[in-house]
Every structure is written in structure tokens, then in C-alpha cells.
């Protein structure tokens, strides 16, 4: 991948390689699940329930740690006490990395918008790629968010990966 980013090849020659890399990346997303609150149960249902079965989309749950993960799913309420830990684990992830913010609490604070202890949205700490609304979102919504993220990864150019606006599901 370093070869691609540094541009050793010319652009036309690079296209099939980029396509292949992106294709490989999008179907081997190791997802670090940061289950915090209610949404964690729906995320768990999406991962281990045979009805939803996230692994058929090429998403592999339960990595040994954030250092092996490509994707982190923040599902639930982030509090001010938890925020430093979220940031710390995010920084441990290797690039390229993606963030899914699942549920209203992680998006904006949700029903705790006026609380004294809740962080009003995880995007105040780390950049978010996909927002999934709902309180909690159904597992299908998480699956859709992952499919949309995979489409973006497929059409991604490694150099300007960060330029896109975040995806909002729904």
C-alpha cells in the first residue's frame, strides 16, 4: 500500500491495483466493537445472531485488540469519564481506519443531550465515517451502514481518503 500512496506507479497503471486493494480491504474489515450501552446489544445481535450474521458481509468481529482492527464501532453513550479511553484506543488503531457511530447517544448525546456527564457525540473526540441514527438502531441499520461504508471503500483513492463527507444511514 505504501507503493500506491507514494505514487511510484502512474495513475492509469495504478487503477487495477487500487481496485484490487480496495476490494480486498472492504471484505476483510476487522471490526473492533466498542459496546457501551443499549446499542451494544443490537450490535451483538448483528454479530452473533444467526438472523443477521454480520460475517457474511466480510466483517470479522472480536479482534484481539484495537491494533488489529480496521473498523471501530462506537455503540452507545460516551461519557466524559469514558472519552479519554475511547480516544486512546482509537489512536492505537493502524491506518486506514474507519469509525461507525451507532445510535443517537454516540451521534449527538441522544436523550442525554442536557446531562452533565455525557459527551454530546463521539465526533467531538474522533472523526466519524458513518452515522447510524436510532435509539437503538436495529441490527439491519448497522448492516446497511457497513454496506455503505464498503461501497465507499471500493471507490476510494488512497491519497484523498479523508475528503468525503460522513455517511448518514437512513
Amino acid at each position: 500500500m505504501g507503493v500506491v500512496e507514494k505514487g511510484t506507479f502512474r495513475k492509469p497503471a495504478l487503477k487495477p491495483l487500487t481496485w484490487l486493494l480496495n476490494y480486498s480491504r472492504k471484505y476483510s474489515l476487522w471490526m473492533y466493537q466498542w459496546g457501551l450501552a443499549c446499542c451494544a446489544i443490537e450490535m451483538g445481535a448483528a454479530m452473533v445472531s444467526p438472523r443477521y450474521d454480520i460475517m457474511r458481509l466480510g466483517v470479522i468481529p472480536f479482534p484481539a485488540g484495537p491494533r488489529q482492527a480496521d473498523l471501530i464501532c462506537i455503540s452507545g453513550t460516551v461519557t466524559d469519564k469514558m472519552a479519554p479511553a475511547v480516544l486512546r484506543l482509537y489512536e492505537q488503531m493502524p491506518d486506514p481506519k474507519y469509525v461507525i457511530s451507532m445510535g443517537s447517544c454516540a451521534n449527538c448525546g441522544g436523550p442525554y443531550w442536557d446531562s452533565y456527564s455525557v459527551t454530546k457525540g463521539v465526533d467531538q473526540i474522533i472523526p466519524v465515517d458513518v452515522y447510524i441514527p436510532g435509539c437503538p438502531p436495529r441490527p439491519e441499520a448497522l448492516l446497511e451502514g457497513i454496506v455503505l461504508l464498503q461501497q465507499r471503500i471500493q471507490s476510494e483513492d488512497m491519497a484523498d481518503r479523508w475528503r468525503g463527507d460522513p455517511i448518514v444511514v437512513g
Binding site: 448525546g109 442536557d114 446531562s115 452533565y116 456527564s117
Partner: peptide, 15 residues
């Protein structure tokens, strides 16, 4: 953290 949240004179800043 500063203050005692459940005292009635503790303001909710978001509000």
C-alpha cells in the same frame, strides 16, 4: 469534576 450535580443550584449547562 467540580460541583454537586444533584443540588438544586447546580445548573445544566446544555439547557
Amino acid at each position: 469534576f467540580e460541583g454537586y450535580p444533584l443540588r438544586k443550584d447546580f445548573p445544566l449547562l446544555a439547557r
